[in-house]
C-alpha cells in the first residue's frame, strides 16, 4: 500500500442518535486516519463518543437507528454508501471488533468452537466443516488457550474471563482482517490478565499486519500500546498526535485532567502545567 493512502480515514464523522426530543449528537466532526499495520488509541471518558466511533466504523449503528454523516474511507471504499450485504461481507473479514465484556459477547448456549467457526462459515463458504474445525483449533492455540482440543467444545461459562476474551479475539482475527477495533477490551478483566490480553492483541496484529484501533478510557493502556492517540470529549476530538507528544506535553486542559486522574500519577512529572484544583 502506498504510504500516502491510509488504510482507514475518517473525515468529519458525525453520529446522531434519535431520541424523543430529536437527534442527539454523540460524535461531532471527528477526523483521523490510521495506516496499515499501525496502532491508534482513542481515549476519552464514558460518554465522550469514543465507542460510537468504533461502532460507526463497524457499521453497527443500524440497530440504534443512528444517523451517520461525514466520510469513512476504508481500503479506498466509501463505507457510508455501502449496502447492507456489502457491510456484512466486510465485517468479520476485513474489519473485526473485540468488545468489553467477553461473557456477554459470547452466546451462552453455543459452543465456542461454533462461535469462532461462524466467521469461516459465512465468509469462506468453500471450507468444509472439518477444515473449519481445524482452523478453529489452530486459532485457539494461537490465542494461547491450552488444551484447545477439549476447549473447542466448551461453552462460554466454562471458561475464565481471560480465556473468554481470548476466544473473542480468536474469532476477530480469524480471517486476518486489516483492521481490528478493540472497544475497552481489558476493562472487565483482572489487572494481571489485562496485560496478557493487550500483549496478545499486539503480537497477533503485528504478526498478521492488522491495524489496531484501541478504544479505552485508560491512558496507561493506550500509552503502552499505541503510537498515535486521539483524545475525545463530548463527541469532539480535543487532541491528537503521537502518544509521546500528547501525554508528555498535553495542550488541552481536558487531556491534562485525564492525565492527572491516572492512579499513581497524582504528582508525577507528566502533569506539569495541569490546573490545580
Amino acid at each position: 500500500m502506498v504510504a500516502a493512502s491510509p488504510l482507514l480515514s475518517v473525515g468529519n464523522l458525525t453520529v446522531d442518535y434519535p431520541s424523543r426530543t430529536g437527534l442527539i449528537r454523540a460524535v461531532d466532526g471527528v477526523s483521523f486516519s490510521i495506516s496499515a499495520g499501525s496502532v491508534l488509541g482513542v481515549v476519552g471518558e464514558s460518554g465522550s463518543g469514543k465507542s460510537s466511533v468504533g461502532f460507526a466504523l463497524m457499521g453497527l449503528t443500524d440497530a440504534s437507528k443512528a444517523v451517520l454523516g461525514g466520510t469513512i474511507t476504508f481500503e479506498g471504499r466509501d463505507m457510508l454508501t455501502l449496502s447492507r450485504s456489502a457491510w456484512r461481507q466486510l465485517r468479520g473479514d476485513r474489519i473485526a471488533m473485540v468488545f468489553q465484556d467477553a461473557m456477554a459477547t459470547l452466546n451462552p448456549v453455543m459452543r465456542i468452537g461454533d462461535q469462532i467457526g461462524e466467521v469461516f462459515r459465512w465468509h469462506r463458504p468453500e471450507m468444509s466443516r472439518r477444515a473449519i474445525r481445524a482452523a478453529c483449533l489452530e486459532l485457539l492455540e494461537r490465542v494461547g488457550i491450552k488444551d484447545a482440543g477439549r476447549r473447542i467444545d466448551s461453552y462460554p461459562h466454562q471458561l475464565s474471563g481471560g480465556m473468554r476474551q481470548r476466544v473473542v479475539i480468536a474469532a476477530a482475527i480469524a480471517l486476518k482482517p486489516s483492521l481490528l477495533i478493540a472497544d475497552e477490551p481489558t476493562t472487565a478483566l483482572d489487572v494481571t490478565v489485562q496485560a496478557q490480553i493487550l500483549e496478545l492483541m499486539q503480537t497477533l496484529c503485528r504478526e498478521q499486519g492488522t491495524a489496531l484501533i484501541l478504544v479505552s478510557h485508560d491512558l496507561d493502556v493506550v500509552s503502552d500500546v499505541c503510537r498515535d492517540v486521539v483524545v475525545m470529549k463530548d463527541g469532539v476530538v480535543v487532541e491528537a498526535g503521537p502518544v509521546d507528544d500528547v501525554l508528555m506535553n498535553p495542550q488541552h486542559a481536558y487531556t491534562q485532567i485525564l492525565l492527572k486522574a491516572r492512579p499513581g500519577f497524582g504528582s508525577g512529572h507528566m502533569n506539569t502545567g495541569a490546573p490545580h484544583g
Partner: peptide
Amino acid sequence: DFITFATAKG
C-alpha cells in the same frame, strides 16, 4: 452483546 458480536462477525 452477543448479537452485536455475531453481527460484527458478518
